[in-house]
Simulated assay, not measured.
Amino acid sequence: MSYSERPIQAPIPDPTTEPFWEAATEGRLMVGLCRDTGRHFFPPRGVSPFTLSPNVDLVAASGRGTLYSYTVMRTKQPYIPAMVELAEGPRIFTNLVDVAPEKVRIGMELRVAFQATEGGPPVPMFAPA
């Protein structure tokens, strides 16, 4: 069974995360941008993790990244949790899809691949670029 066949729990958007999930529905990955430092962060939120200032924006990310770390969960329905470093700098904890565990390598180029959920917005995961 591939990961795309695994049921994915739908996220529950709140007023802070609603714009992120709306963009995900449109196939766009968003990150936070601290206007004081010019640095990107994830997950997006109402204050900068660098300055604690509310001078932040939600901006589109390229959807590209490299594999920073991973493990293979060899369960009845195997999956690959991973830490991906986005091209913009922040790291995102996610899952890898569309790749066999033996093909996974640290540093491999990845692209966002939104996965459908039951009754909610799609969730960003990553696949080989």
Rank of each mutant, 00 (worst) to 15 (best):
K103R: 14
P7N: 06
T94R: 14
L52I: 02
F126V: 05
Q115P: 02
P54Y: 02
F41S: 07
Y68I: 14
R91Q: 14
T17A: 05
T16Y: 01
M30V: 09
M108K: 05
R64I: 08
V112F: 05
T117H: 03
P13K: 13
E85C: 05
E22T: 15
F126N: 01
L86F: 05
F50E: 13
V112N: 04
V47H: 02
T75K: 06
A23H: 13
L110A: 09
Y70M: 01
F114S: 02
R35P: 03
C34R: 10
Q115W: 06
S69W: 11
L58G: 03
G89Y: 15
L86G: 08
M30W: 04
E5P: 00
R91M: 15
A116L: 02
S4M: 04
R35I: 06
P81E: 14
G107D: 02
G46K: 00
N55A: 09
D57V: 03
T51W: 14
L58I: 05
F41T: 04
G119D: 01
E18V: 09
V104P: 15
I92D: 04
Q9R: 08
R6L: 09
E22L: 15
R105D: 03
M83L: 15
E88H: 12
F126C: 01
G46P: 01
F41P: 08
A100S: 09
Y79D: 01
T17M: 08
V84A: 08
L96M: 11
P15Y: 07
A24I: 15
E102H: 11
V104W: 13
I12H: 05
T71D: 10
S2W: 08
V99Y: 08
F126E: 01
P122N: 04
T25S: 11
P43N: 13
T16S: 03
A82F: 15
P78I: 04
P90T: 11
P54R: 02
Y3I: 11
P101T: 12
C34Y: 12
R35Y: 06
I8Y: 07
F114T: 03
R111G: 01
V72M: 00
R64L: 09
I80N: 01
L58Y: 07
V31H: 12
M83Y: 14
R45G: 00
P43W: 15
V59P: 13
V123K: 01
G46E: 04
E26M: 05
M30Y: 06
Q9V: 09
L110N: 09
S69I: 11
I8H: 14
Y3T: 10
Y68F: 15
Q9K: 07
P90D: 12
G32S: 02
R74K: 10
P101I: 14
N55L: 07
M1K: 12
A113P: 08
P13S: 06
P122G: 02
P11C: 13
A127K: 05
A24K: 14
A23K: 15
M1C: 10
N55G: 02
E109K: 07
T117S: 10
P90A: 09
F20T: 05
A116N: 02
G107N: 01
S48L: 10
R45P: 00
P128S: 00
G32W: 04
A60D: 11
P90Y: 11
N95C: 08
A24F: 13
